[in-house]
Design a protein around this nucleic acid. Structure first.
Lengths: 125, 125
DNA sequence: TGCACATCTGCAGAACTGTTCATATGTCGA
DNA sequence: TCGACATATGAACAGTTCTGCAGATGTGCA
């Protein structure tokens, strides 16, 4: 890392840099947002969340849907729960999970929708 | 004692599981989507992409904005480029990068917008 | 009360990711 | 053509993340 403002940094377009810096969200906000994306960035977790789009499911059903072991499923759900992305409801011996974050729901929905469009289109290059 | 069924999988709500499985996108699609989210899941890369929302910037300016070393910036951009999220244009000795994926742009835009709403609201954890 | 079940948790190894350092490539100006 | 510069790349190392395992917790039923 080097000095941000003064030495050793040559800028090509200092004005743009300044204006970009200006509208750049606070570091915390960036980190939080990246955290959320990061949670969605694992295929297993993403599948878990997609499965929950329609409503709550219990751990063993989620394990079945995702193909994960129940332990792995539980670990994943714990992470998601820690970030308030899902919430759990206990019913007898079962734990039912549901999506609990409107923002995340939107992102997942959106991703699935886009998935269906892009379908099999895989341009080489 | 275990497995009365066959494959040692007991389901609580087999119908829901079937219907969820039904509308679950293909594995490939899930993985691709998770890949994209994963790219957005790193604060440095996310910052890079936010910086590019307004238009192209060269590597050294991007390094300045994100506070990354130029090498790290280059590596990050390479990754993003490999996934067709950004594209590069060479102009003399400089390389100008720009956002090249409408879907990603939308996600980043959305995230930033949401960031501004949620502002300082930080429930404990 | 005791047992079976569903889920949770800590731990340790494996796999992955991002950074730096060193060096390579390609461009410009003298 | 040479040297300074901007960026790219490869290798290696450090930190993080995920999984399975083993055992813990909590619940329902006989």
């Amino acid at each position: 890392m080097q000095g941000l403002d003064e030495c050793a940094v040559r800028l090509v377009d200092p004005e743009r840099v300044a204006s970009v810096n200006d509208r750049m969200p606070a570091e915390d906000a960036i980190v939080d947002t990246a955290d959320v994306f990061s949670l969605l960035g694992d295929p297993r977790r993403l599948k878990l969340l997609v499965a929950l789009l329609d409503g709550e499911l219990c751990v063993c059903d989620l394990a079945a849907v995702t193909g994960l072991s129940e332990s792995a499923t539980s670990h994943a759900l714990r992470l998601l729960r820690a970030h308030r992305v899902v919430a759990a409801r206990r019913d007898g011996r079962n734990a039912f999970y549901r999506l609990d974050d409107a923002h995340v729901r939107m992102l997942v929905d959106l991703a699935v929708a886009h998935t269906e469009h892009t379908d099999a289109i895989h341009p080489e290059r």
